[in-house]
Design a protein around this nucleic acid. Sequence first.
DNA 1: TTGGTTCTGCGAGCTGGTCGCATCTACCGT
DNA 2: ACGGTAGATGCGACCAGCTCGCAGAACCAA
Lengths: 154, 154
Amino acid sequence: MRLNEEEAAIVDGWAVEDAEAVLRAHDCRATGPRVAVMRALLRHGGPIDAAELTRLAQVEESTIHEATVYRTIGVLSDRGIVTHVHAGHGPSLVRIGGDHGLLAVCRDCGAIVQLPAEVVKTFVEQAHAAAQFTLEPGHFALEGVCAACAGHSA
Amino acid sequence: MRLNEEEAAIVDGWAVEDAEAVLRAHDCRATGPRVAVMRALLRHGGPIDAAELTRLAQVEESTIHEATVYRTIGVLSDRGIVTHVHAGHGPSLVRIGGDHGLLAVCRDCGAIVQLPAEVVKTFVEQAHAAAQFTLEPGHFALEGVCAACAGHSA
DNA sequence: TTGGTTCTGCGAGCTGGTCGCATCTACCGT
DNA sequence: ACGGTAGATGCGACCAGCTCGCAGAACCAA
């Protein structure tokens, strides 16, 4: 389920203290573990993997099990509160908010870069025109070399 | 649209019978299992996962172990004889030949589509111009909906 | 043929993620 | 404010995909 623009804006404006309200607003039971996971997500801000997210949530509620974190990510994802992206070979990453567009991961330093929306849009349109394939980027990141690493090796 | 088997082999100039010669030409011991894996790759032609490749190779040499197939894929990959691509959530896929460009996987039916090289090239150039990020697509596939599945749901 | 290097089968192990189940808890109706 | 109950949790077992260590087998140059 995707967020509409209004919801996405609200999500982006949420502070750590709003964790419980966010859950209730999305018809989600506000249990201890879920609130702790939401707070950890909001506090961290950026893309984060499940293991690290578990560690952060356990700071507030030490008994949280990793399986619970995975299940929580699942319900948050169903509600469009978070999205997850597969960036390279490791674990997938979760972040607050709806569709974030197409990401690129630097092969050398692991930096995650958001590719410009217009460039992606043009690409999706051309791919559809040329191959009748409707790309839905966002779930899988592409690989490459970031500006900094390209500079180093040059 | 999956790749035609014969076509893929022809592109690289190798027929199934050349399996052993290809190995020797790349400074690779021509052992029974490796030859069987190469023959299976050449016969199949298109992208294939390790489990299926093992099954195909076992038709010729029934004792081949999946670990051996993984190791063989490793040496073939080091020599540039094959490349592997991560296409969606499942296992990674192997195919004969070097860089094949960017693939797309249908979210509904799993079909693997090769995106037109021209379109990909333009996209890579625009991404570099706009974000100073040098995309090296080929290792990770994108997700989307193929023409057939889009037709079904429409 | 021989000998040393390389490869193989096998099973154990690792990571990322899911599941079944007994127990517990949030929350709705009273 | 307080039960009843749908739904959530912790836990450990499990699964897929892949890697590794080892003892023995295969390869191939001499």
